[in-house]
């Protein structure tokens, strides 16, 4: 049994190397001084933080980081609240129209954001929200996937706990807040990481709904950056690493949860 295990490990390592090689090249290139033309096949000759310093200043990343963090946290908080509330109603309460509402919620997922973006733009314009944080937060503040995910998770929890609390005179809100949510950490963490990373990485909304420099987000800043410094590869790679660091850290901390989250809550009922 040893030989196949070694072969498997080798195969997995080779695969991981191939998949990760673009990221390795990015990392190696970012250690060169700005304006140089590194050789991607050779290992880095020394390491300097010059490109990082230059990228941090020229990309206006302080502002972009602040904006992206604020927007991503706001969207994530709103999605967690709206999803938990609606998910609870769909999983535990019975009321007329329940099936229809569940189906409608799922149907919203089939409609591509790119079709909705123009009418949303007009709605935001009419509400004078273009070029505000509202334009970056409201369009994704609720999500059918989040509602579905929370519903699916609540269905897996035993009803007995709640019934005892209801008999003791707790209302539905207290049951959700004090009993179900503390047990729902896996689903909440999964939804948190998913939504935060999705929002952090989003280019479309800031590109279309904002033009004000004060509202620049990390991805938009990066996209502008690459237009401005087209051929300064070390500088661009350093900027790319800076922009990726927060989600990378979040992913490494939450990877087990995240992968299990997609594998279970997202797919199986």
């Amino acid at each position: 049994m040893v030989a196949p295990r070694v072969a498997l490990t080798l195969l997995l390592t080779l695969g991981a190397f191939l998949v990760l090689s673009p990221l390795l090249v990015v990392l190696c290139t970012s250690g060169w001084p700005p304006g140089t033309l590194p050789n991607q096949l050779l290992p880095p000759q020394g390491w300097t933080w010059q490109s990082y310093q230059a990228a941090w200043q020229q990309g206006h990343f302080i502002l972009a980081f602040a904006n992206s963090t604020f927007v991503a946290l706001a969207v994530t908080a709103l999605q967690l609240v709206t999803s938990a509330l609606a998910g609870y109603a769909l999983a535990r309460l019975s009321f007329p129209g329940q099936q229809t509402i569940l189906l409608l919620t799922l149907a919203t997922l089939v409609i591509p954001f790119q079709l909705l973006v123009i009418p949303i733009f007009l709605i935001l314009k009419a509400a004078h929200l273009i070029n505000t944080y509202g334009a970056l937060i409201l369009p994704t503040a609720a999500n059918g996937f989040g509602v579905f995910l929370m519903r699916q998770f609540f269905l897996t929890l035993p009803v007995a706990l709640e019934e005892a609390a209801l008999l003791d005179g707790a209302n539905r809100w207290q049951v959700l807040w004090h009993i179900l949510l503390p047990l729902s950490r896996p689903a909440l963490v999964t939804l948190f990481i998913f939504t935060f990373i999705g929002e952090w990485n989003d280019l479309f909304k800031p590109l279309v709904f904002t033009t004000k420099p004060e509202l620049i987000t990390v991805q938009l800043s990066l996209a502008n950056f690459q237009e401005q410094f087209t051929n300064d590869w070390p500088l661009m790679m350093a900027a790319a690493v800076i922009a990726t660091l927060p989600v990378m850290i979040m992913f490494i901390l939450g990877q087990r949860q995240l992968i299990r989250g997609i594998a279970t809550t997202g797919l199986k009922s």
């Binding site: 998949v19 673009p22 990221l23 790679m237 922009a243 995240l258």
Partner: peptide
């Protein structure tokens, strides 16, 4: 490791 490209933004992937 195999999952990591998924969490990288398309802008970063495009630049890389």
């Amino acid at each position: 490791a195999y999952y990591s490209p998924v969490i990288i933004s398309m802008v970063v992937a495009g630049i890389a």
